[in-house]
Computed example of a mutant assay.
Amino acid sequence: MGGSVLFIPGFFALASLGVYTLSVNFPEHTGVHSNSSDLKFPTNMDELQRVANFLHDYKNDHFNYVMVLFTSAYLYKQTFAIPGSVFMNLLAGALYGPWVGFILCCFLISCGSSFCYLLSDFFGKKYIIQYFPQKVKYFQTLIEENLDSLFFFLLFLRLFPMSPNWFMNMASPIVNIPLDIFFLSILVGSMPYIFICVQTGCVLSQIRSLDEIFTLWTMAKLCGIAIVALLPGFLIKKHCAKQKKKE
């Protein structure tokens, strides 16, 4: 069932130390917003605005350092399933603009989720089964019922805004979802959500709460896109069923 689960807190401690070291060793800079106390993982829009101001001020003179810090922080949150990725996506839009921010976040969310998958695969399977037996069993049933169109089914789950992505990242190796299909489904499936966040991040100063981003209309559109993603899978399943009847 893999290695000892004690490796996970060890990796977490090392990763935490790395992100912390980056955050407290900024190159010297005297800018309008160069207050290092503002640099932390944001949990609301006010904190996000302060972090964005701080990093934007540094980015002009220390682009590579800010990029390394942002990338490390994003991967850290995704790898260890820490809530708050929406703020990182908004921050990407504020720092890098709509297209660079979009591409960067799509890549990082796919890589970070894959690292979470690998941690679960090597060290956490037994404990996820132990603490979430019903959820794992239900997920396993869904995967087995959609094996003929696995990619499109996973795409639907990633596009659907209410899906528990943190759980799917950890449970996917348990139900034998291949890593390449897992990675690709996240890369494609996260695009609409990330696009909305990054575009909004470009006008961050005009946003006061997350409710202004994820309105009922926005959620309905995401659900609609998710349903459309099911159509190819439905057609594939129908075709496979016909082939089995012929046999």
Rank of each mutant, 00 (worst) to 15 (best):
G2V: 04
G3K: 08
S4I: 06
V5L: 12
V5A: 15
V5F: 12
L6F: 11
L6W: 14
F7A: 01
G10L: 14
F12M: 11
V19S: 01
Y20K: 03
T21G: 00
L22H: 10
L22K: 10
F26Q: 11
H29W: 05
V32S: 13
V32A: 13
S34W: 06
S37E: 15
F41V: 15
P42N: 03
T43L: 10
M45F: 09
V51Y: 05
F54N: 02
L55P: 02
H56I: 07
K59N: 13
K59D: 12
D61P: 00
D61V: 05
V68T: 15
L69C: 04
S72A: 15
Y74Q: 09
L75T: 04
Y76L: 11
S85C: 06
F87W: 09
F87Q: 12
F87C: 12
A92C: 08
G93P: 06
G97R: 09
F102R: 07
F102P: 02
F107W: 05
L108S: 03
I109H: 00
F115A: 13
C116T: 07
L118T: 12
L119N: 04
D121R: 14
I128Y: 05
I129G: 01
Q130R: 15
Y131E: 09
F132D: 05
K137S: 14
Y138L: 12
Y138A: 15
Q140P: 00
L142R: 11
E144Y: 04
E145C: 03
N146E: 13
L147F: 00
S149H: 01
F152R: 01
F152T: 02
L154N: 10
F156G: 00
L157N: 01
R158C: 00
R158F: 00
L159W: 01
P161D: 05
P161S: 05
S163D: 01
P164W: 12
N169V: 11
M170F: 07
P173R: 03
I174T: 04
V175R: 08
I177L: 09
I181N: 05
V188W: 02
G189S: 00
M191H: 07
P192W: 07
Y193V: 07
I196E: 04
I196L: 13
C197N: 14
G201D: 09
C202Y: 06
C202V: 14
V203H: 10
L204Q: 12
T218I: 15
M219G: 07
C223V: 15
G224H: 03
L230D: 10
L230G: 07
P232Q: 06
F234S: 04
F234R: 04
I236P: 04
K237Q: 15
K242C: 01
K246N: 08
E247I: 13
E247F: 08
